[in-house]
């Protein structure tokens, strides 16, 4: 009997402990959430303060500009097809910048990724330094490289292409090396046993295993790069972004052309988005890739 009451006491104690633990955890969570909400609020107030126009003053005007653009586009709607044709070459340039940057960046990223994967790298002590290089390449916003290169090389697509390609090397190099890590090493051992050199082992042993995942990531990057290429055009690197800025600085009277450019850009982004998602689904047989942040 005495034994039983003892157990009873222990249970009570455990329950009390559990409740106290749960309560303290709930209080902690509440404090964290309150802190987070306070930070959001304070952040909003600070941002509002430092903005040229306030949020609540600006809110009623938010539709003014789209309305201006739409009304001008509607008034001169018959000109729209002409504009679409006029700006189509610029769109091609923007897409070309993204495509070339993805291709070159992807190819370089592929080679680097093989050098930074443990188990595959031919020179293991280079793994650390090369990974830091990839980190830095990823950390530099494209616009920084593009602006400096525009100063050195003049405007045009090349600075934008180089800037995006550098970033792509950083981003794809890391993702590719994560894919490489999951590759089976057995084919490599087989190839090594018959005397294959390092490039042969990579080309025949690793690439066939990882190619679908590579392609899938590269497509996702292409999507992101099209957006980047449009933005870089806006700061002077050619393509449709450049035309957009010209029509925008012109102001009223050219908004119909701006509308045409908006439309082209929107349609391209959505089309590439959909296309790449279909292709990616087929490549990975429905298997989900880890989501990539832009």
């Amino acid at each position: 009997m005495a034994d039983l009451t003892g157990t009873q006491g222990a249970t009570d104690e455990i329950r009390a402990q559990y409740l106290a633990h749960a309560r303290s955890k709930r209080v902690m969570n509440l404090i964290l959430i309150l802190l987070f909400v306070a930070m959001l609020g304070a952040g909003f107030v600070t941002a509002d303060d430092r903005n040229a126009g306030g949020f609540f003053e600006g809110l009623p005007n938010i539709l003014d500009f789209p309305a201006d653009v739409l009304s001008e586009a509607y008034e001169r709607g018959h000109l729209l097809p002409g504009y679409l044709v006029k700006y189509f070459p610029s769109l091609i340039e923007t897409v070309n910048i993204a495509a070339v940057a993805t291709l070159i960046g992807g190819l370089i990223g592929l080679m680097v990724s093989l050098l930074v994967t443990r188990g595959l790298a031919p020179v293991p002590f280079l793994i650390g330094p090369l990974r830091r290089v990839l980190d830095i390449l990823r950390a530099i916003p494209e616009i920084v490289v593009a602006l400096v290169l525009i100063y050195l090389l003049g405007g045009g697509p090349i600075p934008a292409m180089i800037a995006i390609a550098l970033h792509t090397v950083g981003a794809l190099g890391k993702l590719f090396s994560e894919v490489n890590e999951n590759a089976s090493l057995k084919p490599l051992e087989g190839l090594e046993s018959v005397g294959a050199t390092w490039p042969q082992r990579m080309w025949l042993g690793v690439i066939p295993q990882v190619a679908p995942n590579y392609l899938s990531y590269a497509l996702l990057r292409f999507e992101i790069n099209i957006r980047a290429s449009a933005i870089l055009g806006f700061v002077g690197a050619g393509g449709i972004g450049y035309d957009l800025r010209n029509t925008m600085t012109w102001g009223q009277g050219k908004f119909d052309e701006a509308a045409a450019i908006f439309l082209l850009l929107f349609l391209t982004i959505v089309a590439v988005d959909q296309l790449s998602s279909v292709v990616r689904n087929r490549l990975t047989h429905g298997a989900k890739l880890q989501e990539v942040h832009p």
Partner: peptide
């Protein structure tokens, strides 16, 4: 572009 027309330049935009 659209938002900076309404709110002006700055971090909020």
């Amino acid at each position: 572009i659209v938002l900076s027309r309404a709110f002006g330049p700055g971090p909020l935009t």
